[in-house]
C-alpha cells in the first residue's frame, strides 16, 4: 500500500474506466468502418484491407516474383547467352541451363557459338533472393512483378524454357 489512493483513482477503478477507454477505441473503429470510404490499403482509413482477388495489388517495381527469360525485342531471339552464371550463383541450385555449340552464320563467316537449348527453373525451391537476376550479364533473366505462382501439381512448379519466356497463365477474378 505504498501508493496513496486518490478519490479519482479509486473512482476510475470502480467505474472500470481503464476498460472503457479501450472499448471506446474499438467502438470508434467500428463506427468509422461503417461510414468511411474503403479504398483498401490506406492506413488513415478505418478499413485497411483490400479485397484481394477482386482488386489486384500493385506490387513494387523491384518486386522479385515469377522468373522470366527475356527475348531481344528486335530479333525475337533469346537474350540468354548460356553463360551459366545464374546457375552458379544460385544458393539453392534452382536453375539448370542447357547449352549446345552450334554453327551460326554471321554474314560470310561461320562461327561456333554457344546457344541456349533448355532452361529449367524450379520455382518450388527458389527463394526469390534475386542473386541470379543481379548477375545475369545480358539482363535476360528477370524476376517479374507476377506473384501468383500456385499450380496444381508439384511437377508444374518446374518451369521450362517455354514457360519462362511466355510467363505463367494467371487467372484473374472479376467477381
Amino acid at each position: 500500500m505504498s501508493e496513496r489512493r486518490s478519490i479519482g483513482s479509486v473512482l476510475s477503478r470502480l467505474l472500470l474506466v481503464d476498460l472503457f477507454k479501450g472499448l471506446a477505441v474499438t467502438l470508434r473503429y467500428n463506427a468509422r468502418a461503417l461510414v468511411e470510404a474503403r479504398d483498401g490499403a490506406d492506413p488513415t482509413q478505418a478499413i485497411y484491407t483490400a479485397q484481394y482477388p477482386k482488386e489486384r495489388p500493385l506490387v513494387g517495381e523491384r518486386w522479385r516474383g515469377a522468373p522470366k527469360l527475356n527475348n531481344d525485342p528486335r530479333t525475337g531471339e533469346s537474350l540468354c547467352i548460356a553463360c551459366n552464371i545464374c546457375a552458379l550463383v544460385c544458393p539453392v541450385d534452382v536453375i539448370s541451363v542447357g547449352q549446345a555449340n552450334r554453327e551460326v552464320r554471321d554474314g560470310e563467316k561461320r562461327k561456333k557459338k554457344k546457344v541456349l537449348t533448355t532452361f529449367e527453373f524450379d520455382t518450388s525451391r527458389c527463394m526469390f533472393c534475386g542473386l541470379c537476376q543481379e548477375q545475369c550479364p545480358t539482363l535476360c533473366l528477370e524476376l517479374t512483378q507476377e506473384f501468383e505462382l500456385a499450380v496444381e501439381s508439384r511437377a508444374g512448379l518446374v518451369w521450362d524454357r517455354e514457360m519462362l519466356e511466355k510467363g505463367i497463365h494467371v487467372v484473374t477474378y472479376k467477381k
Binding site: 474499438t26 473503429y29 467500428n30 468502418a33 461503417l34 474503403r38 478505418a46 478499413i47 485497411y48 484491407t49 479485397q51
Partner: peptide, 13 residues
Amino acid sequence: KVAAFIQARLGPM
C-alpha cells in the same frame, strides 16, 4: 462483421 469492423477489416464479403 463486428470483429472485422473493429479490426480494420471487412469480414465476409
